[in-house]
């Protein structure tokens, strides 16, 4: 579209110049660690004071060990389960709040305060949140138990944190609660980037809120939505802090995610750097696979959305074309 403008080639060198600082910083600070990790997955590097590094006779031995490790398989399942249970409600609520807070006709009073407060759980460190929820649901004495017993829902205190389902549910809930505000802010900033005239035009045409949201807002923040989906996928599949700090991956490995697994391989005693690196690379490929699917899916819909939108009103089509 507008990117194929004449005269672009002349300025092409600035593309290189402007990305140079990033490239340099990356080369200096991140390239070595990444290559190092990729490499040691094929070696016998382990132990606190690693000796000489040798590439294994069967270079994929570590990968095989990780993939056939029942604890890793369980962790992979947990990771996906907890991510889905947290992400679907998280994105839904964030979209709903975005719709409310960016609605130009409602001009919701106090929305500034809401926006500020809703992001707040993301500010507190994960360690504090973990302690807080542990105390809330502790056994046999904890606020939740006390209340449930007093109200009569429970006869006696119940040990919530020993049940696998409950533990996973709580981790998913904490993740949801810590991150929906973040997602909402991302989406709102995307909406704020839309040319207001598009909305004005739609209003003049008498489009309903529903139409405006689905046919103007969503198509116009599609690139940001892709960002949200991809980063949340990456963040979710690398979920670490809460599962590690809340219940140490327990009970019975129910909240053990792959990142905690990787950490345990490397730091819980045997310093199995090689296996940790192999597991990291496996996770990298899994994440890349799913991200690619997201990219493919949303790239196609990108043009769809714009086409649909032009159908709503001629006036806004004109404006939209200008933007």
């Amino acid at each position: 579209m507008r990117k194929k403008k004449t005269g672009m080639v002349k300025y092409g060198k600035y593309g290189y110049i402007f990305s140079l600082p990033f490239a340099i910083a990356f080369l200096v600070f991140q390239l070595y660690p990444i290559l190092f990790t990729a490499f040691i997955g094929f070696t016998d590097l382990k132990g606190v004071v690693p000796g000489e590094i040798h590439v294994l006779e069967n270079p994929f031995e570590n990968f095989q060990q990780v993939l056939t490790n029942p604890v890793f398989q369980g962790a992979l399942g947990n990771t996906f389960l907890i991510w889905l249970c947290n992400f679907i409600p998280q994105l839904s609520l964030a979209l709903l709040l975005t719709a409310w807070f960016t609605d130009r006709r409602w001009k919701l009073k106090g929305q500034g305060i809401y926006k500020v407060l809703i992001y707040m759980p993301n500010i507190i460190t994960a360690a504090t949140i973990a302690i807080l929820f542990k105390s809330l649901f502790d056994y046999p004495v904890s606020p939740v138990n006390d209340i449930l017993v007093k109200v009569g829902i429970l006869k006696e205190a119940h040990n919530f944190l020993i049940s696998k389902g409950m533990a996973r549910g709580l981790v998913a809930f904490i993740q949801f609660w810590m991150w929906y505000g973040y997602t909402m802010l991302i989406l709102i900033s995307g909406v704020l980037g839309i040319n207001p005239e598009i909305f004005e035009a739609a209003e003049v045409d008498g489009a309903s809120r529903w139409q405006v949201f689905w046919q103007i807002t969503i198509p116009n923040i599609k690139t940001i939505l892709l960002f949200t989906l991809v980063t949340s996928l990456i963040g979710g599949l690398n979920m670490f802090d809460i599962p590690k700090l809340f219940l140490l991956g327990g009970p019975d490995n129910a909240t053990l995610t792959t990142s905690v697994f990787i950490y345990n391989q490397a730091f819980s005693g045997s310093y199995l750097y090689n296996r940790a690196a192999a597991a990291s690379m496996i996770m990298f490929f899994i994440i890349m696979f799913f991200s690619s699917i997201l990219f493919l899916l949303l790239r196609e819909k990108d043009t769809d959305g714009k086409a649909k939108y032009t159908g709503v009103s001629k006036k806004s089509e004109k404006k939209g074309g200008e933007a």
Partner: peptide
């Protein structure tokens, strides 16, 4: 995008060593 997907926990080891 690719770099973004690399899990952080273990690349840390290389960073410290460096």
């Amino acid at each position: 995008i690719g770099v973004m997907m690399i899990p952080a926990q273990v690349t840390m080891i290389g960073f410290y060593q460096a």
